[in-house]
Design a protein around this nucleic acid. Structure first.
Lengths: 131, 131
DNA sequence: TTTTTATTTAGTAATGATTATCATTATACT
DNA sequence: AGTATAATGATAATCATTACTAAATAAAAA
């Protein structure tokens, strides 16, 4: 009784895996078409949703409201998000001790992954007039 | 040379402070009108943006893409976010040690606040057919 | 293999939160 | 007061995402 997985979902996972970088739905759509995969944008969204519910991929909603997807891996990334320009800088370490997370695995909630995001002003936006 | 702050911004802060709960822009707009404050929705958005850039309030973008605002305080909250139904359960402790965060205060990025979010399936959605 | 049924898909319209625009009003400065 | 600057309201525009519908594909039954 294995998980049924449509063609489009396989293609999506394939691209996400070789990327090893988060990507938004529309760029992913372009990447798939470039590879020659023939699928529509709505199908990409559907596939992403299904994979998200399986716990296979994770979603990060950026300050601009758009979602970025990536396969869930131990080497997850966190970001410094600028509230000025909206850009995100990747961090290469996670300040969370693994054992600190365990209590949250319980209480009737199956945790797939976590996100830790920092918000503030990047150097560029610090030296800039607000508008 | 103190910070200039418009009437609308004062009203927004006032409501956010008495709330002590995150709220989205449109509900905030309704709350302000109910108090008798006369301002438009666009002004609410403008005020929230300005206060965000000041580092006075924080924004959390929910999985559905809408933003929730609250005053930045030491007693910040984290959530368990269900990837199924989108509901958020508040946690009452932060697993992050304060000293673990200090390194991220440096490197040309002024950190106002952080968010730590857990994603997975709530008990209801675990016992439900995917659709 | 044909027929039947359920699933998947593409294309596109609809949605909804947020942002841009622009004319108007309030505020600051001389 | 008179002019420059900033703030505001109303509403149109934007844009990622979702809903919808009909067609295509796959799976199951006969």
């Amino acid at each position: 009784m294995s998980v049924k997985r449509s063609n489009s979902q396989k293609q999506i996972i394939s691209v996400l895996k070789e990327l090893k970088e988060e990507i938004n739905a529309q760029d992913l759509y372009v990447k798939l078409r470039q590879r020659g995969d023939k699928l529509g944008l709505a199908t990409v969204y559907r596939g992403l949703k299904a994979l998200k519910l399986e716990g296979t991929i994770q979603e990060r909603v950026s300050p601009t409201g758009e979602s970025f997807y990536s396969v869930i891996s131990k080497e997850h990334q966190h970001h410094l998000n600028c509230v000025g320009c909206g850009r995100s800088l990747s961090l290469d370490t996670c300040p969370l001790e693994q054992q600190a997370l365990e209590p949250y695995q319980a209480e009737n909630f199956k945790v797939f992954y976590h996100t830790l995001e920092f918000f503030g002003l990047c150097s560029v936006c610090q030296n800039q007039q607000p508008n």
